[in-house]
Design a protein around this nucleic acid. Structure first.
Lengths: 337, 337
DNA sequence: TTGAAAGCGGTACCAG
DNA sequence: CTGGTACCGCTTTCAA
């Protein structure tokens, strides 16, 4: 294991010069710096993590807490974890996982032992118990998602309400006055925060734009194919020709199946907007206008904020809502007749 | 931030006594120990992670490398990550995530900087590049899965070949002489190691037991519903009444659908054995005999081995194959006529 | 532009 | 059974 001393000896300088040359925190003459970098590279020098933490009071590690609930949608969840890890790594941070039962206990533990520089919170519940912990630990904590009580918290999330507004506006602008919202599962309206926010946005805007809105959950815990199908068919029978879908892959496919069976063409006979989808809607058999929920965006912003907070601890806590964007794909035609 | 000095002061002892009392590495009189524990608890003392790493040359962190490939089945993968985290935590270790591109670079980095005590390798490919790295780093590395070249490696995995044998044996014992194996996706036969091993086990035993075996992949990258359906129907038309399924949830459901459509009853008209399923087959609409792949078992064993290696670094590298178990559920009746 | 040296907060050896 | 203390390897202040 090569230490800073060996590098210093090899380069014929003191260890402090090595430290400064490598960190860049103090100007070092061009040629000694090169000698040091050469030696470091040649010896495969890598600073000892423990020593660095102790002396520098920086661990270069972020904790990521993720309570895996029964209703967690694995692919979506993985996308968030991956996006966080990638974003963190780009800024020089590793991710320490706190899963399951250890989310709360773990937050306290890693904070108290100075194991991490910041804590990122995933899969935020409306009454999340991690909110209380975030308020007591000194470690900067960033929520990716919004709990109900946001006082003094730093949170990052897509602006789901605005996404709801946007979806309705597009349909209203096109001329539709009746819309069916195919939502998330019932449990997610209780255990998560974002489905409600999108729903509220859709409802608000439907009211103000005089849209006759109906909506339905798409299962109790996981997608209920029969229920989704029944809802879609009932709506179609009833003459509804505009849909907002805030749901997983499966639900989109079921809706598209039903439409296909009836010979209805998306973008001609029927309008669809996929709101806050975290999967790639381009993989659907039919092009669909989408207001995407991009895990990379939320996670990168969260990491960015964490880094800023470490650089300037006096930055005030605040809520960061990411404005939704509308990706048109021709699935919202003017209504027939 | 309470340090060991404050605890020592509060308890009226020296810091070394505190250290020993809390680690238990040296006998400490009952009453001083209590005083120390009280003080520690009262002050919310938690040893500084950096200091501990530096002085103790132990980080109490395991790295977990997981290259998330396109064909990674998210739910299964998550089950493994979760199981590893839980097992590690039980032994006092945290998990540092190395995902995606950083798997190889990350292994070298965390090993060279002494950030982790051991590395656990998930999602092992036949020609995994992490094999070479494992051989060069001093950090103990445990593979959860088998690469092709296993020389000098420590690996843990279900004995998929034995699982293949077991599945065939049960069907052969019951009296079947023709079997269809519904396998994994095509890409997984190239990118992973275990599907081949199960296939080989099934083929070997089919030969020795005089079974007429046919088999098919169940899609190229993800489940191809139409293809699975077609395979099942062709086999049934052909008179096959025994199935081994080594696949995800979906494939099981498609097969059960086809059988239901034809009025064939599992456990009466048709035999099914689910081999190496990593999801809970009890959630299927019909009870199915299962040779489960239990992530907890593999991951716990991997963690266990890692801990042992840290305690005794001279333990030899070896392959640990977990014997399969057969969970009967009445889905293998004697053949009709 | 560089070096010397004082910690950072523990662990574990050496004494008593 | 307990205390003193020499490190662990790096960061950073102080001095030159």
């Amino acid at each position: 294991m090569t230490t800073i001393h060996e590098v210093a000896a090899a380069a014929g300088v003191s260890i402090s010069t090595v430290s400064y040359a490598l960190s860049g925190k103090r100007p070092v003459s061009e040629k000694t710096r090169r000698r040091i970098e050469d030696a470091a590279l040649r010896l495969g020098y890598q600073p000892d993590a423990g020593a660095r933490m102790l002396a520098g009071r920086r661990t270069n590690i972020f904790a990521l807490t993720e309570p895996l609930r029964a209703d967690t949608h694995a692919p979506t969840h993985m996308a968030f974890v991956l996006a966080t890890a990638v974003a963190a790594r780009r800024r020089g941070y590793d991710i320490l996982l706190l899963t399951d039962e250890q989310t709360s206990e773990g937050m306290n533990r890693v904070a108290a032992s100075n194991l991490v520089d910041a804590i990122l919170v995933l899969d935020v519940a409306p009454d999340d118990e991690r909110v209380a912990i975030a308020r007591t630990v000194r470690t900067p904590t960033i929520f990716i998602g919004l709990p109900d009580d946001q006082r003094d918290l730093t949170c990052v999330d897509l602006d789901f309400e605005a996404a709801g507004h946007l979806a309705v506006d597009r349909l209203a602008d096109a001329g539709y006055d009746r819309v069916l919202l195919l939502g998330q599962t019932e449990v997610s309206y209780r255990k998560s925060n974002f489905p409600r926010r999108l729903l509220r946005g859709v409802q608000e805007r439907s009211t103000s734009r005089d849209i006759d809105l109906s909506w339905t959950a798409t299962g109790s815990v996981i997608t209920d194919t029969a229920a989704v199908r029944a809802s879609a068919e009932a709506a179609l029978d009833d003459g509804v020709r505009a849909f907002i879908v805030h749901a997983v892959n499966d639900v989109h496919e079921i809706l598209l199946d039903v439409l296909a069976e009836r010979g209805l063409h998306v973008g001609a006979d029927v309008a669809i907007v996929s709101a806050a989808a975290s999967f790639d809607t381009a993989s659907l058999p039919v092009a669909v206008d989408t207001i995407p929920l991009v895990p990379q965006d939320s996670c990168e912003l969260a990491v960015e904020i964490a880094v800023q907070r470490l650089e300037d601890p006096r930055l005030p806590a605040r809520i960061h809502l990411i404005p939704p964007t509308y990706r048109a794909a021709g699935s919202v035609p003017p209504p027939r007749e």
